[in-house]
Write a protein that binds this DNA or RNA. Sequence first.
DNA 1: TGCAAATATTTGATATATCAATTATTTTTG
DNA 2: CAAAAATAATTGATATATCAAATATTTGCA
Lengths: 145, 145
Amino acid sequence: MNFKSPSEIIFYTIESTIKAYRKSSQKNLSDKVKDMTIDQGLILAYLDRYPEKTQKEIAALAFKDSASMTRMLNLMEKKEYITRSINPENRRRFHIEITTKGKNVLQSLAPVIINNRKNALEGVSEEEIEQLETILSKIRANCTP
Amino acid sequence: MNFKSPSEIIFYTIESTIKAYRKSSQKNLSDKVKDMTIDQGLILAYLDRYPEKTQKEIAALAFKDSASMTRMLNLMEKKEYITRSINPENRRRFHIEITTKGKNVLQSLAPVIINNRKNALEGVSEEEIEQLETILSKIRANCTP
DNA sequence: TGCAAATATTTGATATATCAATTATTTTTG
DNA sequence: CAAAAATAATTGATATATCAAATATTTGCA
């Protein structure tokens, strides 16, 4: 197997880039709020923005599996960032609410998330972001059944 | 928090692309070899190519943590893809050997991995790969302490 | 030489990913 | 309408990620 082909290198680069981004973002976030992961923060943000979505839909937004979502929300409930109650219109669903504690955390998280993105994109032009977007979308389409 | 900024979208795209790639690669791989993950396959390939590297070094190549590597190698040992013996030159290290079974699996995996890459990059020019490489490296550098 | 620091690996704890199976409820359809 | 199909969420099993602490060994230096 050729370990030096461009195709090998590029997936290596994508992988390492996203890992570096996650790691640095998590660090900045942990400095600000103890006991909170990037993903939990993002999910909190999605819940805030789309309060009517089901767990399954939030999961899709965050590229999670329903099973992962269930477990993450269990944790977030235990940590008192959210509460869940059965949705009377459709009793298979939950109605998820962000607690005051959750809202406060979200407030303090927002600038961290924005700053993580800004920092990661320092020196990257709008045009480059568009190129990135275009090329990656093509790859994603190739990999999507 | 603005959920529609380019900076938000681009990380979403990177994330979804790599997930789609992993998922489709894993599927192709599972069709060929039962009970083998992409990462285990890659690690097998690295072990084959760099037989003298330590677990820690292999871990770094594959963007794993030493702890994860230990557990993955335990599994791979249990599945009889590798054997580990203490390296007499430095008894903190292991000498890892790929078993015949491991070598056979590796053989059948190689074309799958190559094909996964080829398929994912269908319609992506060399120039685009270079652009991707350049831009992502910039982002990674921004996120690397 | 002898002991402190460094190194390689493991282990424990906790979080997440993924697949398949299960439960509870709602919707569809013959 | 009643049974079957679809849907939302959960659970179990297993794999992986991550951090911190522990273990074993080697290296560097006073």
